[in-house]
Every structure is written in structure tokens, then in C-alpha cells.
Write a protein that binds this DNA or RNA. Sequence first.
RNA 1: GCCCCUGUGGCGGAAUUGGUAGACGCGAGCGAUUCAAAAUCGCUUUUCUACGGAAGUGCCGGUUCGAGUCCGGCCAGGGGCACCA
Length: 835
Amino acid sequence: MTDNRFDPSSADGRWQRAWEEAGTFAADSNSEKPKSYILEMFPYPSGRIHMGHVRNYTMGDVLARYKKMRGHEVLHPMGWDAFGMPAENAAMEKKVHPGDWTRSNIEAMKAQLKRIGFALDWTREFATCDPEYYGHEQALFLDMYEAGMVYRRSSEVNWDPVDMTVLANEQVIDGKGWRSGAEVEKRKLDQWFLKITDFADELLEGLGELENWPDKVKLMQENWIGKSQGLEFSFDLSNGAKLPVYTTRPDTIYGASFCAIAADHPLAQALADDPAVAAFIDECKRGGTTAAALETAEKLGFDTGVTARHPFTGAPLPVFIANFVLMEYGTGAVMGVPGHDQRDFEFATKYALAITRVVAGDISQADAPMGDAAEPGDGVVVNSDFLDSMTVDDAKAEVIRRAEDGGWGEGKTVWRLRDWGISRQRYWGTPIPFIHCDACGIVPVPKDHLPVTLPDDVDFETPGNPLERHPKWKHCTCPKCGGEAVRETDTLDTFTNSSWYFLRFASQPSDKPFDAAEIAKWMPVEHYIGGIEHAILHLLYARFWTRALAKIGKFDVTEPFASLFTQGMVTHETYSLGDGSWLSPTEVRKDGADWVTIEGGAPVAAGRVVKMSKSKKNVVDPDNIIDQYGADAVRWFMLSDSPPERDLPWSESGIEGCGRFVQRLWRLFESVDADAVGEDKELARRSHQAIVAVAEDIEALSFNKAVARIYELTGAAEKAGQSESRNFAINAILHMVSPMMPHLAEEAWAKLGQEGMIADARWPEHDAAMLVEDEVTIAVQHKGKLRDTLTAPKGASKENLEALALASEKVQRSLDGAEVRKVIVVPDRLVNIVT
RNA sequence: GCCCCUGUGGCGGAAUUGGUAGACGCGAGCGAUUCAAAAUCGCUUUUCUACGGAAGUGCCGGUUCGAGUCCGGCCAGGGGCACCA
């Protein structure tokens, strides 16, 4: 008796080795074929592959394998985003070297990835902590320095007191460190910066050409870059100084009743000799920056006694130090227009300042009283002398024109985006390749001295930067004067590592970061797939690096990722005991309709379906699932049911269903009678239709729809009697599932006596003539409701369809003798009778 | 507060973009096979129904011969930004 089951435990590994030995997925850049670069965001080597990785890489894998079947030369690489703080945390907690910890994690995760059978080109694998990689990164950084894109300045930084490092604005969430969760402090430090603001305009404009990016991500980047246009002008102050302010509403200038400056504005600092002023400034700095604190924070001001002269009316406006004005945005000073800005309104109410209407619905409402809130909306300008009855937009332009003509102000664009602070006081990162010399100042490390490598002997017993404390590492000679000097001990933010890795995958010469000709062959990435959490940081930085390197003349690519796909999370039900403690899915079982613990049978509450996380214990380990069901069932599950951009709820019954389908397909493949003859036209037609539809679905990344179509055709083939058409259908199914369930497909391919591997096979051809149905089902409606369906030959005339519809007994019953006023016929689709 | 997205059976979700709502999967039920079980196969599964039908895609209204799809107004859930002048 033959065992007619597919056995993944023997087949999976066998085919994985076969692909590896044949070099099936190694990309040949000299190939004449059209090129496809498929990339998933490379993982941080945290220790284990989780289901989120599996979902991400399965999607990319289906695309890579499909593209190969379509005759493309595919680059589908994998590597490791290997620098970062968890390695240092592990070093501190477990007394291991960050490098050793990282490399053993890579080892383990690579073995896990290989078990899933991904079509990866492992020959291009690298980790960002390889000195070769970060050495080239240092070279690129020096190129950017030479091009004036890097600078150093003393700046107030976000200091994380727990991790003892500086954080980028992007890494501060609600005033807390993104990793430690500690309240972030302000400190002044000399920091390295990348001039991303020089690229603000093109990064914003470039979004326009990214047609295949989700609107959501583009919108988030647009908001992050935050372009606004307005007027910058200076008030003459009563103390003889000038006060530059920035406003996006110059049209409301006649409504200004005060000025407000930030607590750390130079003018405020100059007045800080007065203890009352100093006390107020201190109070402003203490204010929390959390969402909740801001929501409830009262608008506070301190009248400096100085007044500003209104540029048109000459009226004296009081100048306040105010807690709601930010030094980092615009000029750190604003004109307060209470009538049409909510913050100004609240401030004016508190300090009894004039609230004047200068915008109204129309000119006749100029004297309409203000309500209990500002009116920031559109309208016409009133109570504003020469601006009266102009639209808001015209008035803006007019005020800017007069300011420029009068030489007291100019139209200006202001960005929310700040320069990217890249200094990190950390060991496990790319050393910043600069040397500090007392005689020569800051000197770049000569390129032939690169890489500046990290020392191996480091101690993590005390917090802070181990490079700073290292006895020898930072001491060196100045490349310029040969005198004693010290190295820069800051390392680069890890986001720099992931800002160009896709270039290194495409081309990896040893003597330079990449080769322009090779980059031209592969870039841009055709499909980039990863999590929505990188919508701003990583994706903005990678776009910036690509544009910066293009500007230096490294290549012609401006946008690195032609199409972006952000996949949803893998979620799972949560389980908890009465005391609120979480239980892992392996600790519970279903007892009838209820959940109980496996040990002890205690009642368990099944909670919300949320992202798999260690803290909620609702994680499922891919390794265990692969042991149980094989790689193909897991891959199939990842593609089934949920649209890829949405969350995928993991379920035990779902994976079981996938395991069943793997066996069902195997039985179908085994049922092939190679000598079968005869045509089954209906099945043949459905096969051709599926070939077209599944291809379209895969190209649109609608894997759930492709899966559903494969189920349908499988069901039809199972029910059909033996025929050539049935063999054609099964062959089509085998090819269509091969990107999704490659091990099963190879095993069946071999068993059916086919040459070579299906990984090298082509996507099946369809016959356009076979797609057309000869009969169609026509819906018949009356009063907008479906009354009957009828079968008609495709292309039947309107008259025929109308006659057929009216002949229907059900339709006649519904008409009940009513007069037919109109009949709408949509050929091959429906007849709608109007009475 | 501002901006954006999403609401369809018990569940995940389809619906050629204005043309038969609920494909496909999961779950559930009934049956076949079996000494029994697993596995497998078949049928049923939106709701109500006086079995003729009627209602139904978060709610209210509109446009249309026809609305899950378009428009207006709500409600709920999720996400992003956040004192950005």
C-alpha cells in the first residue's frame, strides 16, 4: 500500500538543498533578461524569526518566484540590519560581546529563514556590522561631507537618560524615548547633522511621482516634511531692536494685537537678568511635552514691557514671552491674531487683549461679533484698510508684495522637517570617520585609512559610550599635521545603515560602495515590502540618501523604491487568567465553547485579537508550525484570506485548513492520468481564466484573491472526469501554486516525470480564445429587484434578451399585468423592466 | 484639536469599479465511509417567512431604471501628526 501523503519533513529540506546547489536564485547582473529587484525590509537580528517576518518575506518570495516564471532576471537578496541598541543591552545584561550576540542571532535566524524555502540570493548576504559594509558607509559619509551635506554644531538635543544617548526628533514619541520610554531631557552637545532640509523640497515633490506608493505613506511623509508658505517680517521694537516673525496668515495682519516670543528666544534671554523673567522662562521649560500635558496646558505669557510697532497702523503691540511658541520653528516669534488663530484667541482672552475680526463671510458682516472661538476659516478681509473685501488668498499676496516693496519683509517657505541629527553616543554602530586635532580642528579620516573599525575589547559595566572610555582606541595621529589627536567617538544613527543597503545588495565591489553601472541595471527596487511603522523614518532617510548620492553624481536614480507595499501585522487572540496574567496559546485548549488551561483546566478568558507580542504572550513560533505542517502550509496561510495590507489573524484551525489543502493538492497531482483523452471545455475555459486572473492578482499583490481562485479551480478539477483538459487544469494549478508552495510543487513536478525544476519553469500560457464564455447568465430585474435569471448565448441582441425576459413566468408574476414603460438592457448582463 | 483610513454572515473576506451581494477559506450542522476513530467525500449554512415572497452591506437622507460601490449629514473603530504660527 502506498502512502499517498506529501511529507514536508523530507521534501522541504531536499528541495531547499537542490535550489542551493543549482544556484537557482542567484541573480546574474549580466543576464539579457529584463531585471526585477524584489526587496523586503531586512530584519534586525533580534534572535528569532517571528510570524511578521514570515508574512513579509512570503509575499516578496511569491513576487520573486512569479517574476522569474515570467522570464525576468530577479534580484531577491537578504541581509541583516545588525547595528543597534539591543545588542548593547544584551552585552550589559548577559555579559556577551554585542558582535558575538549579533552574529549568533544571525546564524539562528538564517537557519530559520532557510527552512521556509525562500528564493533568496544568499551569495549577496551581508550584515551592516561587517567592517566592509560600514567602511563603505564611512566613505559615502565623507563624500557627503565634501559635498557640504554634513555639518557639526552645538545643538540642544533629545537626551535619553536611560539609554544615555541622543535621539532624533523622530525617535521621541510623546516626549519619551522610543526605546527606553524614559522622559527625554534637553541637553546641549556638539552633534553631527545631515542636511536633509536641503532636500525638503525635492523629497516633497518626489512623492508626486511615486504612483505605486500607498497614499497613506505619502501623506504621512508630506505632513512630516510640513511645507508652509507665508511672510517673514520684522517689527520695530520700542527698545530699538527688531523682532522677526513668521506668519502663514499675512492677510490677518490688521488683526494683530500682540507679539509672542519663545522662552528661549534671544530677546527673552536678554531680559533674563530680571528675576521675574528668569522665573517665567524656567516655568515654560518645565512644561511637559506629552500629548496630555499639551492638551490641558494653559496658555501662559509674561509681558516684557517692550512694544512692537505695527507695520501698517503704527500701533504699539505688547510683546509677551509665551509658553506656546517654539524656538525651533519659524523665527521663534509670532504675531498674535486672536480673531483667527485658536491659540492666540485663548491667550488674548486670558490677558484681556483686543480680539478683532479681520475675516468675515462677506464685507457686510465686518461688524459681526466674534464667538467664543477663533475663526481660522476662509472668507473676505474686513476692517483692514486697503485689504478690505479682498479674498484671503489675494490679501496674503498683497501684504507680501507690500512688505517686499517696502523692504521690511519677504515671502518665505518654512518646513517642519529638521536636519537629521546622526550622532549617537554608542558603541555598536558605524564610527563617524573624523579626527579631532588641537592644531587642525576637525579632520576627515583619509579614505585609504577606512574602515575605521570598532575595537573588540570593550566594557559595558558602566553606562555611556564605551568608545569614549576605551583606553587606546580614540587616540591617533592627525592625518594632516601628524600630531597627537583623538577620534570622534560618536557613531552613526542605525538608520544610516538602512539608508543605502539596497544599493549594496545590487552591487558589491570590494574597493567601493557600489558600481554605478550595476546600480543602473537593478535600481530602482521594483517592489519594496515592509511594515507601515517605517512609513516616515526609514523610508524618508532612504529617499534622502538616494537623492543625496545622486546629487554627488554617484548614479542617476532619484527614487529608490518604485513601488512600496506596507503589509499588515500578524495578530492572535489573547488569553488571560482571572488575575490578568497572560497565557501563551500553547498553554490553553478549547473545552467546548470555553477556553481552559491545559494543566489544571482553569478557566481562561479569550481576549482581543492583537499584534503578536511577547508581552501579551500571544506569539506563535514559526519553527514549531513548520515542524507540524511544513513550510508550504505556513506560506499558504500567510497568503490566504486577509488582504495583505490588513492584519492577518493567526488561527490554529486556519493553519490546519492549509495543511489539509496541501494534501488535497498532492492527491490531485497524483490523480493525473497522462494518457487521458478528450476535451472538457468548461474546465479548460476555467483553467485559462484562472491563469490570467491569478497572474493579475499576484501582480496586484492581491494574494488572497489568487488563493481563492486556485481553490476554485482545484475544486473543479477534483470533480471533473479524466480528460486532457483536466490534465491541463492540474498542470496549470501546479504552476500557479509553485511560487506559493514551492516544495510541494517541486515534489509533484518530479513525480510527474518533468525535466528539471519547476522553479525554472515558465508561467503557463493562456489561450485568449478560450477565455470567452459562449453562454452568459442574464439577471432580470423588475422594480430594481432580481426576479429571475436566464441563460442566453453570449452577444444576444437587446431585442432577444428583452423578449426572453418578458417571457419569464416569474417576471410575469411580478409584473402582474402592469404596463411596461421602459426596458433597460445591458448586453450579456441584465434586463431591467420599469413599470 | 487637525489630517487620513475602515465599517459586508458566527469569523477572515469576495463582488469585472454603478449591473445577480455573500465567491473562496474557517467554523458549525446533517449525512456517507469505518467495528470505531482519524483521514476523506457529499449536502446545508445572511435573516424573517402564512414557502407566494419580504428585508438586508454601521445609521439617516439623496442621485439613478438600478447603489456595498456615487453625493450630503451622522455614528463607531483604527492610524498619523500634534502649541508648526
